[in-house]
Design a protein around this nucleic acid. Sequence first.
DNA 1: CGAACGATTGAGCTTCGTCAATGTGCGTGG
DNA 2: CCACGCACATTGACGAAGCTCAATCGTTCG
Lengths: 232, 232
Amino acid sequence: MASAAEAMPDRCADCEIRRVALCGQIDVSALRRLNTLSHTERLRAGSTLLWESESADVVGIVRTGLLKLTASLEDGREQTLGLAFPGDFIGRPFAADMEHSVTAIADSTICTFSRTRFEALAGEVPDLQQALLVRTFKDLDRARRWMLLLGRKSAGERVASLLLETAEANGADPGEPVPLPLSRQQIADVLGLTIETVSRKMHLFARSGVIALPSLRSFTVERPGELARLAA
Amino acid sequence: MASAAEAMPDRCADCEIRRVALCGQIDVSALRRLNTLSHTERLRAGSTLLWESESADVVGIVRTGLLKLTASLEDGREQTLGLAFPGDFIGRPFAADMEHSVTAIADSTICTFSRTRFEALAGEVPDLQQALLVRTFKDLDRARRWMLLLGRKSAGERVASLLLETAEANGADPGEPVPLPLSRQQIADVLGLTIETVSRKMHLFARSGVIALPSLRSFTVERPGELARLAA
DNA sequence: CGAACGATTGAGCTTCGTCAATGTGCGTGG
DNA sequence: CCACGCACATTGACGAAGCTCAATCGTTCG
């Protein structure tokens, strides 16, 4: 298996696929076939892999970095619909047109597949399809949870929710610095706010001692209970 | 096939399942098995089939009526995450806990299955799983499109968007009355607004001649182009 | 007819967006 | 090493959008 990856450095190592994308459920021969279909795509921060309302012929799995899914209105207003971390699946099998753009926030590598070939393989490998279905249900629930935030939470609650979620995703202890992979503008786009409001709320929390802001791209949680209460 | 439905009136007619849920893709024997597993659940408007953050042991397909998916905050604020029309799938195979409630808006009937038995069958019938996957991708894109509305559109744009979408779903011509299945409060919950703001915007549009409001539960589109422009 | 419920309308206020000025960190080139 | 410039972030002043509270209206159902 490793030898295949060495022989074809442009292919994804199948151990990676197995671990990250498919939870070790699919059998080795299908894995081999999946592997020969894959290409590693390198994406610099800021460049876009898939474009809203254009047809896409690739799907993929994020290997490293961070990407955002976004939709825009004609006048330029933009909303981030979700983030894609390593292991997340991107693209739309069984559908030609994208409903959102996929753009790298940090330099990223994506393990890509021809969409039609991936579809064909999925039809032949039920375990692959089931893994994808379970994953898609999770994405759907994540998106819907965010709808509650966008529709009903105040600016302060939104910012607190994001900080809390980021801290938890990092398994950070109180007082320990948590890296913040997003700029203020990107935070605003995720939360449906403006950059100014995000800045004000973060510093409000910092002044009240709930968090600390040691640098622009990190924070610490000083009073976890209070932060959770602020997140509503 | 019809005879099975007659012999067991509590079962869903399989022609219904085939047409509505599975796009005619699954084979007849699997259909039969699916059929013997199904129960028809009748739900009165206002009653809840599945509860947020409780475990659920059923999944199902809406046959008649209309349901809403909702999530709430502790203090009672509620956001509607989506609507389930006839043909829509509800519940979460491969997951025990619900992330949202499912409540009937109108009297409804749902063709339900034991979740675990449905999961087992899905594992055996790849076409069923694929149909479900395609459907789930569509739901995900619908949810994400709504995130753009919740995060970035003004109250007027939200109301116009909902009216436009409702009119289009009904294939209504200009001037023709469109039924509105939601109360003002339910519209507000879908759009992330208050009932007062919804009322004001609707009457604003009516006064300007873009729509007309012949009754509380219907409207007509008088100037489609203008309504589309208002929806942004 | 009256009560109950949902919808409308108005007045005031809060929150958040807008606009503008200022500040801060960082890389580049002198 | 320092100065500069640029991008990003912060802060303040102000206004508008939408929420809250409250009164009224209309409809439906006893």
